[in-house]
Every structure is written in C-alpha cells, then in structure tokens.
C-alpha cells in the first residue's frame, strides 16, 4: 500500500521550556491516550490527532505547560 506523509494541525500543544523532563502526568491522564513522551527531548507531545478537547492534560499539569486548542475542523 502506498503511503503519504501529510501534516496535521493538532490541538494539544506543549511548552517544552516549561514541561518537566520525567513527568508523565498529562500522558497518564489523557482519556484518548493521544499524548506521549518524545524519547529525544523527554518532553510530552501529541502523538496522534485524537482529541475531545476535554482538558485534563492542561488542568493537571503542575507547571502550566499544556495548552488545549480546539481541533482545527471545529475552530
């Protein structure tokens, strides 16, 4: 099967400056499990565009590093 790489605007954005290396709270809490830790940086990121814009990731982050935007198609 052919593959194409296409960009997607994902709703959850992590401020890597603030994000604590080693913390996985947002990754643990996401109901859709759409966040992961980037092994290179140790920081969280959105690994799949699956989002209910519900907000535990942002609400629970101890250092306010997570922003939940409305998914592009709904914005």
């Amino acid at each position: 099967m052919a593959h194409a790489t296409s960009r997607s605007d994902v709703p959850v954005v992590i401020d890597e400056e603030k994000c604590i290396d080693g913390c996985t709270l947002c990754v643990d809490m996401c109901p859709l499990d759409s966040l992961a830790i980037n092994p290179d940086s140790g920081k969280a990121y959105m690994h799949v565009d699956e989002c209910w814009y519900c907000g535990p990731c942002a609400a629970r982050c101890p250092v306010d590093a997570v922003t939940v935007n409305i998914p592009y198609l709904l914005r």
Binding site: I20, C23, L25, P62, V63
Partner: peptide, 9 residues
C-alpha cells in the same frame, strides 16, 4: 523545584 515536583507526583 522540578525534581521536587516530580518526587511529589
């Protein structure tokens, strides 16, 4: 402080 926050969590 970050290390303390991690320990707390």
């Amino acid at each position: 402080p970050n290390a303390r926050i991690l320990a707390l969590l």
